[in-house]
Design a protein around this nucleic acid. Structure first.
Lengths: 223, 223
DNA sequence: CGCGCCATCGACCGATCGGTTGAACGGGGT
DNA sequence: ACCCCGTTCAACCGATCGGTCGATGGCGCG
């Protein structure tokens, strides 16, 4: 770390140099707004902008920011999830902080699975954002309160982790097939189908096939 | 077979060169049966077989058949609908003729939406199949009688014209509720719920609640 | 005023589902 | 080598669903 002539923060962490941030959002006005907001924030430096996933990858590779502020919806082309996945894979040392307007379970879990360090909503208070950026720069998880609630809820019922076979069953289920038909389609016995279904119910937090289909469609577990 | 290359015949079958057909069915015996059946049919040439959607895509890209005979249920992996969708998208000039044992409204409409040129049942008479293959090769629609009936029926009742109440029921259904719970939630009797469900099934072309949820989610009939 | 459509309810039946317990096998990881 | 996990299967039971009769009342429409 070179000598950092940063303004003396009233807080104790004078150690923090400058957090270098890359903005990624397809809306120009949003990027401009964030840039203005962060410009007046000591300790945070916006070093670049990107409007698409590809631009974000290129810019991150070149600029090596500490944190990428990533919107999930980037219009056409690569979405924020995919961009996040590739960023964490291809640009080590850079943390991705998802900043979006959507808070669906599906988006949150997919972002986390993609390797996002944090996730917060654009509706959050600015100082929440500042804190999250600093946290992300240090590799600490940064989830805003409503997001944290959902994540914890999700943790309580360890859903998601469907096995390949369970996904097969779910796929047939979404076609409205009965247990016997699913069994025949997958060349297994009806008993096995029922066994899988019970596990699927547990993982998805439901207790009926209709509920399973609904959750599966919602979380894009099924095409 | 005479390799007569006479292009413009007035109206005889001498005009038809040879219709090149690719079979796609996960059951080996079915493929063998079709191959044998079609081998003895003048004007039709089976140029390849595929047991899965992936195989069908690869084979079609290589062989460039005029018609792909596609079963809808291909066991695990990509189903016939998805395979059809990708075939019409990725292998231009090749027509997909769905040949299956199922005749549910959902399957038919999904197949047609996926771009199938025709749809007929395995229970059909062989000459129906021959005619359908030749029709498909020329790009003409080929629907066997029972299928045509259903399609017309569907056309008569234009959209999935669900009533408000039926949409209510569907919404509760998508939460995985049972009939009794739906009844309580909407302040009606269980019997009424069942009545609505029967109508919903008819309109959506399914016969199970899971199927109804799947179709409803697909067509965005419910949030 | 009929006529059709929608919504409501009741009763019945067989088929299917949801849930449980118990068991077996093979592959991966420590 | 051991154990966990995924996958497979069997048998059983009560609850629920799917399908089918039938019936009533309200509502708009020509």
């Amino acid at each position: 770390m070179p000598t950092a002539p940063n303004p003396p923060g009233p807080s104790d962490e004078t150690t923090a140099p400058q957090v270098r941030v890359l903005l990624c959002d397809d809306h120009t006005v949003v990027r401009a707004g964030l840039r203005a907001l962060l410009a007046s924030t000591p300790g945070i430096d916006v070093v670049g902008e990107a409007a698409t996933g590809d631009e974000a990858l290129a810019a991150a590779a070149k600029l090596r920011p500490d944190v990428v502020l990533m919107d999930l919806h980037l219009g056409a082309g690569m979405d924020g999830i995919e961009a996040t996945r590739r960023l964490v894979a291809e640009v080590p040392g850079t943390r991705v902080l998802v900043l979006t307007t959507y808070d669906t379970d599906a988006d949150i879990t997919r972002a986390v699975e993609a390797g996002a360090t944090g996730y917060l909503l654009k509706a959050e208070r600015p100082d929440e954002l500042f804190a999250a950026i600093r946290a992300a720069a240090e590799g600490r998880a940064a989830l805003s309160a409503p997001i944290a609630d959902r994540v914890l809820e999700r943790m309580r019922s360890p859903r998601a982790a469907l096995t390949d076979r369970e996904r097969d069953i779910l796929g047939q289920l979404a076609h409205g097939l009965g247990n016997r038909e699913i069994a025949r389609a997958l060349f297994i016995s009806e008993a096995t189908v029922k066994t899988h279904l019970v596990r699927i119910y547990a993982k998805l937090g439901v207790d009926t096939r209709s509920g399973a289909v609904a959750v599966a469609k919602e979380q894009r577990l099924i095409p």
